[in-house]
Write a protein that binds this DNA or RNA. Sequence first.
RNA 1: GAGGGUGUAGCUCAGUUAGGUAGAGCAACGGCCUUUUAAGCCGUGGGUCCUGGGUUCGAUCCCCAGCACCCUCACCA
Length: 504
Amino acid sequence: MDPLSSLRSQRLQKLKKIEELGAQAYGYSFKRTHTAEEILSAYKEAMDVSTAGRIMSMRRMGKASFAHIMDVSGKIQIYVKQDNVGEETYSIFKNLDLGDIIGVKGQVFKTKTGEITVLVSKLELLAKTLRPLPVVKEQVKDDEKIVYDAFADKELRYRQRYVDLIVNSDVRKVFEARSKIVSEMRRYLENRGYLEVETPVLQPIYGGANARPFVTHHNTLDMTFYLRIADELYLKRLIVGGFEGVFEISKDFRNEGMDRDHNPEFTMMELYVAYEDYEFMMDLVEDMVYTISNNVFGSHKIEVDGKTIEIKPPWKRMTYMGAIKEYTGHDLLDKTTEQIFQVAKSLHIEVEPNAGKGRLLDEIFSEYVEPKLIEPTIIKDFPIEISPLAKKHRSVPGLTERFEAFVLGKELCNSFSELNDPIDQKERFEAQARLKAQGDEEAMMIDEDYIRALEYGMPPTAGLGIGIDRLVMLLTASPSIRDVILFPQMRPEKADKKDEPEQK
RNA sequence: GAGGGUGUAGCUCAGUUAGGUAGAGCAACGGCCUUUUAAGCCGUGGGUCCUGGGUUCGAUCCCCAGCACCCUCACCA
């Protein structure tokens, strides 16, 4: 027998003993009067409480034992004494393991060492564990938590997030923060009167971003659908339809590489506001991120790698070309493709010989500018070639009214004055189609229905897309997207003999 | 896609300097123990050393291939 199943069978034995003692191993409900944290904060000598949680540590000394049980609020120590609970319950207790979930009733007291503890008078098993929990020990010293033998194997933590959440309390904090961030964002947008809507995930024509899609098939219609790569084109159809402020918070799917910043499915918030432009959106995004941070963390500073990032508006603003000039010394506005090509070469950027202007600029920008944008910075007026859905700049030819905000060298959001000229939009789509024909798998498809919608007239509109995962990474100082996604995408687990159901 | 790293007990890790099938702490099991607290004391059990090949009398270790995860770069928002 392998060791894991021997640990399991020991637990199965205990389960049997407990049942033989007439107790139930899997309860139906348990009425609590206090959470662990409430007991600590409401402490009064001899206060009666009823609380429940998972056994995280046990110190047994013959006929009396201490244990800590943990619920969502924290940990509380319990003291189980045979004289108090009776022999029968105590023998049940002796068959409990770390990880078991129990409910207890009793009076609160302070031990010699001053720890608030429940002196148990009644104990009920609510769920018996069959698998051993990773044993993590903690010691609190001068407010600093020292963790011994932390459950640290990232692969196991991501694959078995339930275990990670049980033993690594900071993990839950990240996801609680994530939930609050989304909820604060929703409230922020609703307070401004914008309407949350839902648009299709399954799309016959994908669009709104440059990315390769997931492909699927509908049986009854016998046709190909794509999982959306963006919500954009549907949301703007709603602006055509007369809504004046709509947003959607939802999953997008991109069939691309996975790394620290990319998960195949990720959460996006897109917002469209009629009669506004990108300048309006710059102010909005600054204020929104600042407000969310304040409301969730009570702070507008972020500590990362020993750096302190101030996110209070106003953020630094630069033009795209201005930023390239500042960080490379080259003024590329009004330059020809050939001239830009030469500059790229002189900057030691590898470029394909037939790369277009937009591509060249994008390479230079990504290489020389992006990594420098540590403090929150808004970069505006992007080249038209890489902005097929953005409105032409009102005064500078070749540019669009598009901006992105960067923090810690990474993009935080993407926004523009939306292109509402159907003829211009059609030409942009056609340019994309030519790129696609040349083999650019990420170029956009022509969406005739979207053009038709624009032909009915879309008011001037400001649009914004903000990646929720990356915003959460920023605000929680998480180094990997996998740390802010509960169940990140992983390669399938190898079939593990140990995990096969036992034959009985 | 390229390079590097890691993979040993349920968990965290040693180790095999030079090839002879392996150790610690915690957890588990048994005994003693009715206010302890990262680990009370004594004892016991527990391993396909990631997988598959090769070299060898013999491989956890050396060689080759593969898999998973991590890091860097590339691709990519």
